[in-house]
Computed example of a mutant assay.
Amino acid sequence: MSASLLLGLVAASGSSVEPTLVTAEEAARPDAPPDPRRSLFPGPAIHLLSPTPRDLIRPLTSPVHLKIAFEPTNGASIASSAVAVRLMKQPSVDLTSRLGRSISPAGIDLPIMKLPPGRFPLLISVVDSNGDRRVTIYTLTIAK
């Protein structure tokens, strides 16, 4: 197990160690092509709160506070187990388990997320209790 992954797992368990969500090797991989998955029904809304969508225009400085809110629709609910987060690189990296307890039915809240320099297209997928899915990609760029 790499040291970066271990740090991420320790941080997800509630330790005060700053998590490294993505290893330098994973960050260096080429970006994957856009994911064409779409649902006929809109599913729950996914709102990027921190950094804001406007912040994504320029490179960010690590660590980053990652905060995403989920908004169910049509009286549906969202379970933490119905949320998936992938780093869209070739090959892609499932970050869901690394985020651990940062994922809740209300969203994702990781106050201190360390990332190496690079470009990070994050695919967030949420399925509600009606079976409706929403998939959104936010790309974070971390300055060198």
Rank of each mutant, 00 (worst) to 15 (best):
V93M: 00
T96C: 06
R119F: 06
R98D: 02
I108G: 02
L99Q: 00
K67N: 09
V83T: 01
P117Q: 15
A82E: 05
P33N: 07
T20A: 05
D132I: 07
A76D: 04
D132H: 11
G131L: 02
K114A: 14
A32D: 09
S77Y: 14
D35F: 07
N130W: 06
A84Y: 06
T23K: 06
D109A: 12
G100C: 11
S125Y: 02
D109G: 13
A106E: 14
I108R: 08
D31S: 07
P19V: 00
M88S: 03
S81M: 07
D109T: 12
L123R: 11
S50R: 15
D31A: 11
F41H: 05
V126S: 03
F41D: 02
R38N: 04
E71P: 00
S97R: 14
P59W: 04
A32V: 05
V85I: 08
T23W: 03
A106Y: 11
R133E: 10
I57N: 11
I68Q: 07
S125T: 15
H65S: 15
F70C: 07
F120T: 09
N130H: 11
S39G: 04
V22Y: 10
R133G: 00
I46Q: 00
G75F: 10
P116I: 13
G107F: 05
D128F: 08
